[in-house]
Design a protein around this nucleic acid. Sequence first.
DNA 1: GGGGAATTGTACTGATCGGTTAAATCGTTA
DNA 2: TAACGATTTAACCGATCAGTACAATTCCCC
Lengths: 226, 226
Amino acid sequence: MPRTGTLESKKNARRSSWKQNPQAVQENILRVAQEVFSRNGLSGARVDEIVSLTETSKRMIYYYFGDKEGLYRRTLEEAYRKVRQQEVELDLDHLAPLPALEKLVRFTFRHHRESPDFIRLVMIENIHHGTYLAQSDTIRELNRGAISQLERILARGKAEGVFRPDADPLTVHWQISAMSFFNVSNRATFSLIFGDALNSTAGQDGLETWVADSVRRMVVPSNPIS
Amino acid sequence: MPRTGTLESKKNARRSSWKQNPQAVQENILRVAQEVFSRNGLSGARVDEIVSLTETSKRMIYYYFGDKEGLYRRTLEEAYRKVRQQEVELDLDHLAPLPALEKLVRFTFRHHRESPDFIRLVMIENIHHGTYLAQSDTIRELNRGAISQLERILARGKAEGVFRPDADPLTVHWQISAMSFFNVSNRATFSLIFGDALNSTAGQDGLETWVADSVRRMVVPSNPIS
DNA sequence: GGGGAATTGTACTGATCGGTTAAATCGTTA
DNA sequence: TAACGATTTAACCGATCAGTACAATTCCCC
């Protein structure tokens, strides 16, 4: 349907020239999308809100990402990619097993703490039963390696006799993740019910040490008292 | 016209006052609402879907609960109420501190595991920054007591000298909650990335023991090796 | 047995929201 | 430089969805 009068207005109002910049546009959309999806969830997020926080128009989202779910999927992918990138440069192999493990745990705890948006995206994804994560081969492969550093540390520690021979890397990783994740994911309800003592700077530092201790005490040979 | 005849129960005898079946209707709605909200979240849930799974009509939801958010709030309240009711009858005071703690931890882990709907509601509530939990005084008060059993156990253990004197009840509770909660909340993404070994019956039993151990090792005096 | 309040069914609506249409403009290259 | 594909704009649409109007029915009390 041809618009009436547009032909004329187009001539008068010579638009301030827009530059073609596909890459910047996509990055702009993804950055905003991460923020909005993280805050409101998949069904809670409004495409129009994303648009309004963007330098571009609604059409662009559908042009580059197909539909809302496509944008969400790409957002999730980018978030995982960024997080995993940061995790690699820890250089733990030159440390003794116990200090290496402690450094890894403390890094994980702090890293989760500083990435609430990412945590929220993972929460949202779990609400959706991992539907969209399941659709992305790249994310799944990317993450499998997340455990390899821990595997090496545990192997060295077992060889030296400072770690229990039956300490399972997957389970230890699970333990580290559980506490680091929960610390962020359930902050709202936990603080409301039990107060925010654990949420203060001192409280968080205390928890970090607690988590590091609890992991160390689990991989070390049995406590004779028990 | 299908009245809610099938839902009538012995409660009618109790209530001598007027009304047709308000109580049964509300319970029916709340039961369905918990299921649908738990599955789809607040914004993801469709009022019409709730209605269709109900014996009543859409009008009733708005009559009894005001609006969608009101229904969600009541749903959350009921879920917390039911959960806390079950937690009280544990009778741990006649056990020695260490066995009592182990029983509490294992109960919590198993209880979370068997209440995925409740866990999901709490996840959803955290996505919403605890907005609706904050509006319910009853829930908050209800939950404060959730830590008292642990406090008593720790106090006894410290008195007997089997527990560290500086073991903080809140932190220990946090640790128990973190692992028990994460085990359910992040099952989807964790299984997708790392496989579902920890999700099998054997895997879950192993985790339960792992969690119990990790809590015990934290409250017990320092491991000499460290 | 009727007045009045509480409850319920039916049918509807206005707003929201994801997604689309069709044309205009830009960058590239033949 | 003209043609062409890629990109961008603005207006628009149809479906969905939370919420309502209003009449009808049921129940209690007198």
